[in-house]
Design a protein around this nucleic acid. Structure first.
Lengths: 229, 229
DNA sequence: GTGAAATGTGACAGTGATGTTACGGGTTGC
DNA sequence: GCAACCCGTAACATCACTGTCACATTTCAC
């Protein structure tokens, strides 16, 4: 994977430096703008993999920048991470309403910053699951019809169970950690408990019946689909 | 690896002595300054591999020193470990905001000090382990699938055994000391006994069967992966 | 050769990850 | 409004894994 590129729109020099420094250290290419107008221009020209956007900017509200980026066809899909000094729940909601993908309240630690960014990138850089029918051994998964079969016998799954199985089955043999599955199946802004994955795997195994052997637990790592059955 | 060099900026003689002594014992070159101004000069001239910086200094706040070091192009990349008497979480966050890489609250044990420093140096000097498949002779290690094969035959390993083998195999021929492996595989805050590594190497060898010859004991130094088998 | 230090080996008990079951809130369909 | 269903959380059970110890064996310095 090539080096991800970030745009940081932030007027306070300290924060701008700190953010840039930490992402560079983590192996990202970082570009910066210090106000909303230049920020918009930068994003359109650079087309970064992620935008770090301060809520409070000298010329323009960060919300407005966010709105404009999400309204533009070209930049609509670029994920946005909002920074703000206000921890109020109202602001949080407004941030998400505008399409921000994550939201960080100052002060924050570099570690938290980079981890959250990585979570977003992992999700957005992952090739989206397509609608092709997946076939693993005697299991068949058809996303288009939301249908699962084992030896031709249909199996009824709920939406969450289906997505879980679909993600697992689309890369057989590969380990999917609980955190990774939470990101993909539940969305990276999901705040829940990682044991939730276990419960759903259990329900999935129940419904799969004889096919449950396809889901293998790898202790200390996660779950995977067993190959060659 | 050449001997790492440290700069210790600390006015209290007791601490200065204690820190210097322990790092010298651990094989580091140690240089010291007793106030912020001389500290800045020292770092710029010496360009050490790590700066140990007290938060409270006679002439200048440690935060200010940190800020100046991180603002300077030349010294920006040098990692900084902050020492402080204040354990409050607020201070911790302020420390990180300024780009400090780690943060140690007095009083601390010499062992913890050195371990944390080593961990920082490793993180900044060693590229982190990636997900690429490692191939050593007839051994194959695939982190993505959490899979190990010898001559195509799969070998089941636990999570710890797997990480241990992965670290060893990613740099064949290099000697990995027990301390080093403890830091990498178990994490630098791990407080355990270094014989633990031996036990795990033993279990690993057991499971590797005929492939156990790949793990070589270097008496007095550690373990390494034998090349050219 | 001899003793000390380092390492290999086997056993053991505690812990921690996972499996399992149950419950209550929320949503959907009728 | 009711019933059925889906979901996340929690509590408990279980067992693999793990760290530590005691002892055996090897290696090295003298």
């Amino acid at each position: 994977m090539k080096k991800p590129v970030l745009a940081v729109i932030e007027d306070e020099s300290d924060i701008q430096e700190m953010v840039a420094f930490n992402f560079q250290k983590a192996g990202y290419g970082v570009h910066g703008a210090r106000d909303g107008l230049n920020g918009l221009r930068l994003v359109k020209r650079l087309m970064p993999d992620l935008v770090i956007l301060d809520l409070m900017l000298p010329d323009m509200d960060g919300r407005e920048v966010c709105r404009q980026l999400k309204a533009d066809k070209g930049t609509r899909l670029i994920p946005i991470m909002m920074l703000t000094a206000l921890a109020g729940e109202a602001d949080r909601i407004v941030g998400f309403e505008l399409g921000a993908d994550d939201y960080l309240t100052k002060p924050f630690s570099p570690r938290e910053l980079v981890l959250r960014a990585q979570a977003i990138l992992r999700r957005t850089q992952e090739p989206p699951l397509d609608n092709k029918t997946v076939c693993v051994g005697r299991l068949l998964i058809d996303p288009e019809r939301h249908r699962v079969e084992f030896d031709g016998q249909p199996i009824r799954l709920t939406a969450t169970e289906f997505r879980l199985l679909h993600y697992l089955a689309s890369t057989p043999g590969k380990i999917h950690s609980r955190e990774y599955l939470l990101d993909l199946v539940w969305g990276y802004s999901y705040k829940g408990y990682s044991r939730t994955v276990d419960t759903h795997v259990r329900r999935l195994r129940d419904k799969l019946g004889a096919a449950q052997d396809y889901i293998e637990t790898v202790r200390g790592a996660g779950y995977r689909i067993r190959e060659g059955l």
